[in-house]
């Protein structure tokens, strides 16, 4: 049993690290979020979410994150179905192709979308050339949703693909044998069995969409403030750590809520590891 003691000691550096760089920093967010400049305990900054300008940014962030999550599901589900129908030989390669974009700097990719979507950008030039009406999407909430869908779509594709692929083919054959048509099989068998994938896809798209400040800054033209932008500005421009931390606590509440929902549906945590 002496050997076990030695082995357990191997975790010690990480435990020290986790306390120092994960737990203490989080405690500090709570400390600053729940106190004011005079070091008094207060809920003032957390409750300041009710102020119209903060509430509006939270509401908009929730709304845009919700819309982009729904769009992601609608786009990714048919694709995951198509991918899972492929012969197993190419399957690695195909999934690989859909993950690959995630490895190019996402700021540059979003910047490329700015170039493409601008009012006199590439897409509008092509539309002009074809004598079609122009799109004016840049600097609107729609452009932000577009950017979110673009950036986070792979996070939806992968868990969906994994969970659909895991479904026993015999179950599908049984459904067919028992007389279900394609859509009945889809809605009664495939979709219910892929719920863990849907749920983990939702958290993986919803949380980063809800908390981003980069996409909204770049495609929203800096005029549309989401809760992430407000927090970022409190820290970098106003240097008001108390206000920024207070709003971060609110943000974490929403993340915890979405994690709780994930855990209810995804008990074995399969969907989380891609």
């Amino acid at each position: 049993m002496k050997s076990n003691k030695f082995i357990k000691l191997l975790s010690a550096p990480y435990i020290v690290w986790a306390v120092g760089f994960i737990i203490i920093p989080l405690i500090m967010v709570f400390y600053y979020g729940l106190s004011n400049r005079d070091k008094q305990f207060t809920f003032e900054y957390v409750l300041s979410i009710a102020k119209p300008e903060h509430f509006k940014s939270l509401y908009l962030a929730l709304l845009l994150a919700l819309v982009s999550t729904i769009v992601c599901i609608l786009l990714a589900y048919p694709l995951a179905l198509i991918l899972s129908g492929l012969k197993s030989k190419n399957e690695h390669l195909v999934v690989f192709i859909f993950i690959l974009p995630m490895w190019m700097n996402f700021l540059l990719r979003t910047y490329a979308w700015m170039t493409l979507l601008e009012n006199n950008g590439v897409i509008n030039s092509i539309l002009n050339f074809l004598h079609l009406p122009n799109i004016q999407i840049i600097n609107t909430p729609a452009a932000i949703v577009f950017g979110m869908v673009y950036n986070f779509l792979p996070f939806m594709i992968l868990p969906l693909y994994n969970s659909i692929n895991k479904i026993d083919k015999n179950v599908l054959n049984a459904a067919r044998d028992l007389g279900a048509n394609y859509f009945q099989t889809l809605f009664r068998v495939i979709i219910p069995l892929s719920v863990p994938g849907i749920i983990s896809g939702i958290t993986m798209v919803f949380v980063p969409s809800l908390t981003t400040f980069v996409v909204s800054e770049m495609l929203g033209g800096g005029k549309i403030l989401l809760i992430g932008n407000v927090i970022e500005q409190e820290f970098t421009q106003n240097s008001n750590w108390y206000q920024g931390s207070g709003l971060s606590i609110v943000l974490m509440l929403f993340i915890i809520i979405s994690m709780v929902i994930t855990n209810i549906y995804d008990k074995d945590g399969e969907g989380n590891t891609l």
Binding site: F21, P25, V29, P208, T211
Partner: peptide
């Protein structure tokens, strides 16, 4: 760190 928002991880480390 994997599930929390990057912005919260970032500011928590910044505060530290």
């Amino acid at each position: 760190p994997m599930l929390n928002a990057d912005i919260v991880t970032g500011i928590s480390l910044m505060l530290l």
